[in-house]
């Protein structure tokens, strides 16, 4: 029988640490187990097993998805690695699911979900990423910028998989806050943004007001992002957070919203495929060009396609507990009607 929403809400929280096997005698990769889930990889594929089914994914797609899930701290709401497997952030605990948001699995009763304390799941996923990511493959990079994850185990790329998001507390460049990106702090201009103006605003503070005025070139900042589909935070106005990001190729996951978020396309173009959060049924295609603005309602999942590296401003609301207010129906999934 498919799990009901009530049954999922009452899932016990598993706190036991994950288990790792010895390296496979042929391909060199470890097997990882947490709760009832088992993760194995070979030279091409990731195999995920749970009590109700087995799921197979291309290993590069799996690692790109897992990289975002880990780097985002499970993000806001649903991170669907594909139409079958993913995680749901409950903020403190995380659900790992197979087919729980896929109508076919639900209809056949083969969906499966377990709930983990976030820290133990994060430790499992971090260790898996470290073991399965070969030297020369960067799961944060666009495909044209990196090598392959395929083949037998070949070293690691811990520098890439341990990349930390840059999160300003108030405003980039203020004393003690997140720094402006530059060659000197290891952020060269990306090849796809070689034509972006690198000038910074002129900030003239009168004596006594030094450190109170601030400004920086956001386009220059984004032109120097070393990663794709991984928002930073550059300014916070109470609960309003600007989370810009540079995008190239495909967002590796379908992000399922647990709150409203907004996209402001600052350069170039992204096409978003939007589907129902619970069933994965197609809903719309949203094409965004420079200057376009669109809301992503709280009841959808979306995946972006960016043919050239582009600049996207993701705008989030950091108010604690919003996910519950949307889930309970207190807040409508669309923020304005007309």
């Amino acid at each position: 029988m498919a799990a009901t929403a009530e049954q999922i809400n009452e899932l016990p929280v598993l706190t036991g640490a994950h288990r790792e096997s010895e390296p496979h005698p042929t391909n060199g990769y470890k097997r990882f187990e947490i709760g009832s889930f088992t993760f194995t990889r070979d030279e091409y594929f990731t195999r995920i097993q749970c009590p109700t089914s087995t799921h197979v994914m291309d290993v590069e797609n799996f690692l790109r998805s897992l990289m975002r899930d880990v780097a985002w701290g499970f993000f806001y709401g649903w991170v669907n690695f594909d139409e079958v497997f993913g995680t749901v952030n409950n903020y403190g605990t995380v659900d790992v699911f197979m087919g729980a948001y896929n109508q076919g699995y639900k209809d056949s009763g083969t969906d499966f979900t377990e709930r983990f304390e976030a820290g133990v799941l994060l430790a499992c996923f971090r260790s898996l990423l470290s073991d399965w990511t070969n030297a020369g493959f960067d799961p944060f990079a666009a495909p044209l910028e990196t090598g392959s994850a395929r083949g037998p185990k070949n070293g690691n790329n811990d520098e890439a998989v341990n990349f930390q998001r840059e999160l300003a507390e108030r405003f980039v460049g203020l004393p003690g806050d997140s720094p402006i990106r530059s060659d000197e702090n290891g952020r060269p201009v990306n090849r796809q943004f070689a034509d972006v103006d690198q000038s910074e605003p002129e900030v003239h503070a009168e004596p006594g007001f030094e450190g109170q005025l601030a400004g920086f070139n956001l386009f220059r900042y984004l032109s120097r992002s070393p990663v794709t589909w991984n928002p930073s935070i550059v300014s916070v106005v109470r609960s309003s957070a600007y989370c810009p990001t540079s995008e190239e190729h495909i967002l590796p996951v379908d992000h399922g919203n647990d709150r409203v978020e907004w996209f402001i396309q600052m350069s170039d173009e992204i096409t978003w495929k939007v589907a129902d959060k619970n069933t994965a049924a197609p809903m719309s295609v949203v094409t965004m060009k420079a200057g376009d603005v669109a809301c992503m309602p709280a009841d959808i999942r979306h995946r972006g396609f960016s043919p050239k590296r582009s600049m996207l401003l993701v705008w989030e609301n950091l108010t604690p507990g919003l996910e519950k207010r949307y889930a309970d129906g207190e807040l409508p999934p669309v923020p304005a009607t007309f």
């Binding site: 003239h204 006594g208 005025l213 400004g215 070139n217 956001l218």
Partner: peptide
């Protein structure tokens, strides 16, 4: 008291404290 000023062009993000 004048606090100062910021000159900005396209792409520049300015804090209004």
């Amino acid at each position: 008291r004048a606090m100062g000023h910021v000159n900005a062009t396209r792409g520049h993000l300015v804090l209004l404290p």
